[in-house]
Design a protein around this nucleic acid. Structure first.
Lengths: 197, 197
DNA sequence: TTTTTTTGCTAACGAGCGTTAGGAAGCATA
DNA sequence: TATGCTTCCTAACGCTCGTTAGCAAAAAAA
């Protein structure tokens, strides 16, 4: 029995409001009563739709993780493309996912540590697997002579760090659109500040 | 009347233990009873040494902010040095401060939002002023032709993002020392992955 | 030795926490 | 009209929170 449209929409609404609060105040500092008030409800009413506070966090974190994997796989599906181009596409794909929903992204990046075991460990394993994708891409690029770095793992961490800072300053109504941001990031990371114009 | 050595050391001990807990569990999710237990005390006893939980956070955040400014000013004091070199030195200085105490750095980077007003706004103003230092350096580099980027502010954010991810993976007993890390980061950020070997 | 400071205890305060139980409306389907 | 589902309520559960008051022992200073 699939849930009716109304149910799913109410649940989704709770998720979205909670995500915004988690981002603004942090997961631990957000109370169910605050969340209920933001939705025009009493605290107890939330539990007609969700099982627990952590369930929301779990859904947000693992949901976006899936998106990242799907996006990465698509960007690097064609092995005949030069590795540097694949990396560029993976960067752009990552930025596109990050900018789609700033609140979800921020919660994904910062609040996952409030997951209790075993979810927390599972999440970290996923993150590690995702990072390995970038690591391998850079290692391939070094092997083929397209890129230069003494340490692919180090470079991958630095690269993702630059990307993952994005949700803390990106505004959907700002000057730069997601595609322009993605392009500039890829350019800066691949060419460097002293690189060719 | 300066506090005696004993007082200062006990207070410092509380700060350090609290900082480690804030890093591991987050500020909001760390209770004074946990902190007390970690120190072998009862919760109430903490208040013989500190005024409030937030006081600890305040000290950590603003203390490290001072360190960053002092370190940056020293790295960029000599205006006769090429701007690219000044930027390199600023990067290395930043990394040195970041790696000095991983727990303090992590709390500084992630827990400041639990400061209540007006401290929170003051903190953000400091951070903005610090970022402006890097922004200006890059803008000067672009003006002098030493660097190339379409947007100095954008480049500065990305640069600091790479640096500030460091506390989440740096281990003092790892393969790379602070100086080696600082050098590699500067190299990667200035030369890029496709830059000259 | 007396005085003061440091350090820590027990006990408790008011408040807020996540969550549950049980009931009652409103609505769609039969 | 009857049934069942969705939605939300009130009231409360046991628990934890940051913090305070008042007292006592130990250490340092006089």
């Amino acid at each position: 029995m699939t849930p009716s449209t109304a149910t799913r929409s109410r649940k989704t609404q709770i998720d979205r409001t909670a995500t915004a609060l988690f981002r603004a105040r942090g997961y631990a500092a957000t109370s169910m009563r605050e969340l209920a008030t933001a939705l025009g409800l009493e605290a107890g009413s939330l539990y007609s739709h969700i099982k627990s506070k952590e369930e929301i966090l779990h859904r947000v974190c693992f949901g976006l993780a899936s998106d990242f994997f799907a996006s990465f796989d698509q960007a690097t599906a064609d092995a005949s493309v030069p590795v540097a181009t694949q990396l560029r596409q993976a960067i752009e794909a990552h930025v596109r996912v990050l900018t789609r929903d700033g609140a979800v992204s921020a919660v994904f990046l910062h609040e996952w540590r409030h997951l209790s075991e075993p979810a927390r460990t599972e999440f970290l394993a996923l993150r590690d697997r995702y990072e390995a994708g970038f690591r391998n891409l850079i290692a391939q690029g070094v092997a083929s002579g397209e890129m230069h770095t003494p340490d692919a793992a180090f470079a991958a961490l630095t690269l993702l760090a630059s990307l993952n800072w994005l949700p803390s300053w990106y505004r959907p109504d700002g000057n730069l659109g997601p595609d322009e941001i993605a392009h500039r990031l890829a350019e800066q990371l691949l060419q460097g500040l002293e690189g060719k114009k």
